[in-house]
Nucleic acid binder design. Structure first.
Lengths: 101, 101
DNA sequence: CGGACAGTTTGATACCCGTCTATGTTGTTT
DNA sequence: AAACAACATAGACGGGTATCAAACTGTCCG
Protein backbone atom coordinates (compact mmCIF):
# COMPACT_ATOMS: atom_id res chain seq x y z
CA UNK A 1 0.00 0.00 0.00
CA UNK A 2 1.37 3.41 -0.95
CA UNK A 3 1.91 6.10 1.65
CA UNK A 4 -0.68 8.47 0.19
CA UNK A 5 -3.53 6.02 0.67
CA UNK A 6 -2.21 5.00 4.06
CA UNK A 7 -2.28 8.60 5.29
CA UNK A 8 -5.65 9.23 3.71
CA UNK A 9 -7.18 6.25 5.49
CA UNK A 10 -5.67 7.29 8.80
CA UNK A 11 -7.11 10.77 8.46
CA UNK A 12 -10.49 9.47 7.43
CA UNK A 13 -10.63 7.20 10.47
CA UNK A 14 -9.66 10.02 12.80
CA UNK A 15 -12.92 11.94 12.76
CA UNK A 16 -15.44 10.47 15.23
CA UNK A 17 -18.55 11.32 13.20
CA UNK A 18 -17.06 9.96 10.02
CA UNK A 19 -15.94 6.82 11.77
CA UNK A 20 -19.40 6.42 13.24
CA UNK A 21 -20.82 6.57 9.73
CA UNK A 22 -18.36 3.93 8.59
CA UNK A 23 -19.29 1.82 11.60
CA UNK A 24 -22.96 2.18 10.68
CA UNK A 25 -22.22 1.05 7.14
CA UNK A 26 -20.24 -1.92 8.42
CA UNK A 27 -23.17 -2.99 10.57
CA UNK A 28 -25.18 -4.12 7.55
CA UNK A 29 -23.92 -5.64 4.34
CA UNK A 30 -25.28 -2.61 2.52
CA UNK A 31 -26.61 0.69 3.84
CA UNK A 32 -28.72 3.26 1.96
CA UNK A 33 -27.64 6.86 2.23
CA UNK A 34 -31.04 7.93 3.53
CA UNK A 35 -30.71 5.70 6.54
CA UNK A 36 -27.49 7.42 7.56
CA UNK A 37 -29.08 10.83 7.13
CA UNK A 38 -31.97 9.77 9.33
CA UNK A 39 -29.83 8.32 12.09
CA UNK A 40 -27.16 11.00 12.41
CA UNK A 41 -27.59 14.46 13.86
CA UNK A 42 -25.70 16.23 11.10
CA UNK A 43 -26.77 17.74 7.82
CA UNK A 44 -27.22 15.65 4.72
CA UNK A 45 -24.61 17.79 2.96
CA UNK A 46 -22.03 17.00 5.63
CA UNK A 47 -22.84 13.30 5.40
CA UNK A 48 -22.41 13.43 1.64
CA UNK A 49 -19.03 15.03 2.20
CA UNK A 50 -17.95 12.34 4.65
CA UNK A 51 -19.13 9.57 2.34
CA UNK A 52 -17.09 11.08 -0.45
CA UNK A 53 -14.02 11.03 1.78
CA UNK A 54 -14.68 7.44 2.77
CA UNK A 55 -15.01 6.47 -0.88
CA UNK A 56 -11.85 8.42 -1.72
CA UNK A 57 -9.99 6.41 0.89
CA UNK A 58 -11.35 3.26 -0.74
CA UNK A 59 -13.00 2.31 2.51
CA UNK A 60 -16.53 2.12 1.12
CA UNK A 61 -18.05 1.13 -2.17
CA UNK A 62 -21.00 2.92 -3.74
CA UNK A 63 -23.80 1.30 -5.69
CA UNK A 64 -26.26 3.62 -7.42
CA UNK A 65 -29.81 2.44 -7.85
CA UNK A 66 -31.98 5.12 -9.39
CA UNK A 67 -31.96 8.10 -7.11
CA UNK A 68 -30.67 6.09 -4.18
CA UNK A 69 -27.09 5.36 -3.22
CA UNK A 70 -26.08 2.28 -1.26
CA UNK A 71 -22.81 2.01 0.61
CA UNK A 72 -20.86 -1.00 1.77
CA UNK A 73 -17.59 -1.48 3.63
CA UNK A 74 -14.53 -2.57 1.67
CA UNK A 75 -12.97 -4.97 4.12
CA UNK A 76 -10.03 -5.59 1.81
CA UNK A 77 -8.91 -1.98 2.26
CA UNK A 78 -9.40 -2.15 5.99
CA UNK A 79 -7.38 -5.35 6.19
CA UNK A 80 -4.64 -3.89 4.03
CA UNK A 81 -4.49 -0.81 6.26
CA UNK A 82 -4.21 -2.87 9.41
CA UNK A 83 -1.50 -5.00 7.86
CA UNK A 84 0.39 -1.91 6.78
CA UNK A 85 0.03 -0.34 10.21
CA UNK A 86 1.40 -3.43 11.90
CA UNK A 87 4.21 -3.73 9.38
CA UNK A 88 5.35 -0.13 9.74
CA UNK A 89 5.53 -0.40 13.51
CA UNK A 90 6.90 -3.90 13.70
CA UNK A 91 10.45 -2.65 14.04
CA UNK A 92 11.53 -4.39 10.85
CA UNK A 93 12.56 -2.37 7.82
CA UNK A 94 9.89 -2.71 5.18
CA UNK A 95 10.49 0.06 2.69
CA UNK A 96 13.81 -1.01 1.12
CA UNK A 97 15.54 -4.27 0.76
CA UNK A 98 18.08 -3.75 3.53
CA UNK A 99 17.28 -6.10 6.34
CA UNK A 100 20.55 -5.72 8.18
CA UNK A 101 20.33 -2.49 10.16
CA UNK B 1 -10.93 0.25 25.25
CA UNK B 2 -12.96 3.37 25.87
CA UNK B 3 -14.00 5.61 23.00
CA UNK B 4 -11.97 8.60 24.16
CA UNK B 5 -8.69 6.73 23.93
CA UNK B 6 -9.74 5.11 20.68
CA UNK B 7 -10.38 8.49 19.08
CA UNK B 8 -7.22 9.96 20.53
CA UNK B 9 -5.10 7.18 19.06
CA UNK B 10 -6.76 7.52 15.67
CA UNK B 11 -6.05 11.25 15.63
CA UNK B 12 -2.48 10.77 16.76
CA UNK B 13 -1.84 8.28 13.97
CA UNK B 14 -3.35 10.59 11.36
CA UNK B 15 -0.50 13.09 11.16
CA UNK B 16 2.29 11.89 8.84
CA UNK B 17 5.16 13.55 10.73
CA UNK B 18 3.92 12.29 14.06
CA UNK B 19 3.46 8.81 12.66
CA UNK B 20 6.97 8.96 11.24
CA UNK B 21 8.26 9.78 14.70
CA UNK B 22 6.36 6.84 16.13
CA UNK B 23 7.76 4.66 13.38
CA UNK B 24 11.26 5.85 14.23
CA UNK B 25 10.71 4.99 17.87
CA UNK B 26 9.39 1.56 16.93
CA UNK B 27 12.53 0.89 14.90
CA UNK B 28 14.67 0.55 18.02
CA UNK B 29 13.68 -0.84 21.37
CA UNK B 30 14.35 2.57 22.85
CA UNK B 31 15.01 5.92 21.21
CA UNK B 32 16.47 9.06 22.80
CA UNK B 33 14.68 12.32 22.14
CA UNK B 34 17.80 13.94 20.76
CA UNK B 35 18.04 11.38 18.00
CA UNK B 36 14.56 12.28 16.78
CA UNK B 37 15.39 15.96 16.86
CA UNK B 38 18.50 15.31 14.79
CA UNK B 39 16.81 13.12 12.20
CA UNK B 40 13.64 15.09 11.56
CA UNK B 41 13.37 18.38 9.70
CA UNK B 42 11.11 20.01 12.27
CA UNK B 43 11.77 22.07 15.35
CA UNK B 44 12.55 20.56 18.72
CA UNK B 45 9.48 22.28 20.14
CA UNK B 46 7.23 20.62 17.58
CA UNK B 47 8.78 17.23 18.26
CA UNK B 48 8.26 17.70 21.96
CA UNK B 49 4.63 18.50 21.24
CA UNK B 50 4.20 15.36 19.12
CA UNK B 51 5.86 13.19 21.74
CA UNK B 52 3.50 14.55 24.33
CA UNK B 53 0.55 13.62 22.14
CA UNK B 54 1.97 10.14 21.56
CA UNK B 55 2.41 9.68 25.30
CA UNK B 56 -1.10 11.02 25.93
CA UNK B 57 -2.47 8.40 23.57
CA UNK B 58 -0.51 5.80 25.53
CA UNK B 59 1.34 4.83 22.38
CA UNK B 60 4.81 5.52 23.78
CA UNK B 61 6.43 5.21 27.16
CA UNK B 62 8.90 7.71 28.52
CA UNK B 63 11.94 6.92 30.64
CA UNK B 64 13.84 9.87 32.11
CA UNK B 65 17.54 9.52 32.65
CA UNK B 66 19.11 12.71 33.85
CA UNK B 67 18.45 15.41 31.31
CA UNK B 68 17.65 12.87 28.62
CA UNK B 69 14.33 11.29 27.74
CA UNK B 70 14.04 7.88 26.14
CA UNK B 71 10.95 6.74 24.29
CA UNK B 72 9.68 3.29 23.46
CA UNK B 73 6.61 1.96 21.66
CA UNK B 74 3.81 0.49 23.74
CA UNK B 75 2.80 -2.42 21.57
CA UNK B 76 0.02 -3.38 23.94
CA UNK B 77 -1.80 -0.15 23.13
CA UNK B 78 -1.23 -0.61 19.43
CA UNK B 79 -2.56 -4.16 19.59
CA UNK B 80 -5.57 -3.05 21.60
CA UNK B 81 -6.29 -0.32 19.07
CA UNK B 82 -6.13 -2.71 16.16
CA UNK B 83 -8.36 -5.18 17.96
CA UNK B 84 -10.86 -2.42 18.73
CA UNK B 85 -10.77 -1.19 15.15
CA UNK B 86 -11.48 -4.64 13.80
CA UNK B 87 -14.20 -5.25 16.37
CA UNK B 88 -16.03 -2.01 15.63
CA UNK B 89 -16.10 -2.70 11.92
CA UNK B 90 -16.70 -6.41 12.10
CA UNK B 91 -20.41 -6.01 11.50
CA UNK B 92 -21.29 -7.70 14.77
CA UNK B 93 -23.01 -5.71 17.45
CA UNK B 94 -20.55 -5.23 20.24
CA UNK B 95 -22.23 -2.68 22.45
CA UNK B 96 -25.44 -4.53 23.32
CA UNK B 97 -26.39 -8.13 23.40
CA UNK B 98 -28.68 -8.23 20.39
CA UNK B 99 -27.20 -10.42 17.71
CA UNK B 100 -30.34 -10.83 15.62
CA UNK B 101 -30.65 -7.82 13.36
C1' DC C 1 -43.91 18.58 -18.70
C1' DG C 2 -43.58 19.57 -13.76
C1' DG C 3 -43.06 18.73 -9.18
C1' DA C 4 -41.17 15.95 -5.52
C1' DC C 5 -37.33 13.29 -3.86
C1' DA C 6 -32.11 11.85 -3.29
C1' DG C 7 -27.67 13.49 -3.49
C1' DT C 8 -23.93 16.61 -4.87
C1' DT C 9 -21.56 20.92 -5.13
C1' DT C 10 -20.35 25.53 -3.64
C1' DG C 11 -19.24 29.25 -0.71
C1' DA C 12 -18.78 30.81 3.91
C1' DT C 13 -17.68 30.27 8.68
C1' DA C 14 -15.55 28.62 12.62
C1' DC C 15 -12.69 25.68 14.85
C1' DC C 16 -8.74 22.53 15.30
C1' DC C 17 -4.01 21.74 15.01
C1' DG C 18 0.84 21.56 13.14
C1' DT C 19 4.47 24.57 13.22
C1' DC C 20 7.36 28.27 14.60
C1' DT C 21 9.92 31.63 17.82
C1' DA C 22 10.84 32.77 22.29
C1' DT C 23 11.16 31.67 26.90
C1' DG C 24 11.14 28.60 31.02
C1' DT C 25 12.66 24.55 33.70
C1' DT C 26 15.58 20.96 35.05
C1' DG C 27 19.87 18.55 35.26
C1' DT C 28 24.90 18.51 34.41
C1' DT C 29 29.42 20.55 34.18
C1' DT C 30 33.15 23.58 35.11
C1' DA D 1 27.34 30.02 41.01
C1' DA D 2 27.45 30.38 36.15
C1' DA D 3 27.05 28.30 31.93
C1' DC D 4 25.50 24.95 29.02
C1' DA D 5 22.55 21.13 27.36
C1' DA D 6 17.99 18.57 26.95
C1' DC D 7 13.53 19.12 27.02
C1' DA D 8 8.96 21.62 28.13
C1' DT D 9 5.74 25.42 27.79
C1' DA D 10 3.42 29.71 25.96
C1' DG D 11 1.74 32.44 22.49
C1' DA D 12 1.00 33.36 17.65
C1' DC D 13 0.17 32.30 12.93
C1' DG D 14 -1.47 29.76 8.85
C1' DG D 15 -3.53 25.88 6.60
C1' DG D 16 -6.78 22.33 6.74
C1' DT D 17 -11.39 20.75 7.50
C1' DA D 18 -16.01 19.80 9.71
C1' DT D 19 -20.14 21.97 9.35
C1' DC D 20 -24.01 24.57 7.53
C1' DA D 21 -27.29 26.88 4.19
C1' DA D 22 -28.36 27.36 -0.38
C1' DA D 23 -28.24 26.29 -5.03
C1' DC D 24 -27.72 22.66 -8.43
C1' DT D 25 -28.14 17.89 -10.83
C1' DG D 26 -30.33 13.78 -11.73
C1' DT D 27 -34.34 10.54 -11.12
C1' DC D 28 -38.96 8.96 -10.56
C1' DC D 29 -43.98 9.56 -11.00
C1' DG D 30 -48.40 11.85 -12.02
Amino acid sequence: MDSALFTKIAKVLADPQRFAILQRIAKDSECPCIKIVEEFPITQATISHHLKELAGAELVEVRREGKCAHFSLRRETLDAYQAELAARLSGLSVGSGKTSE
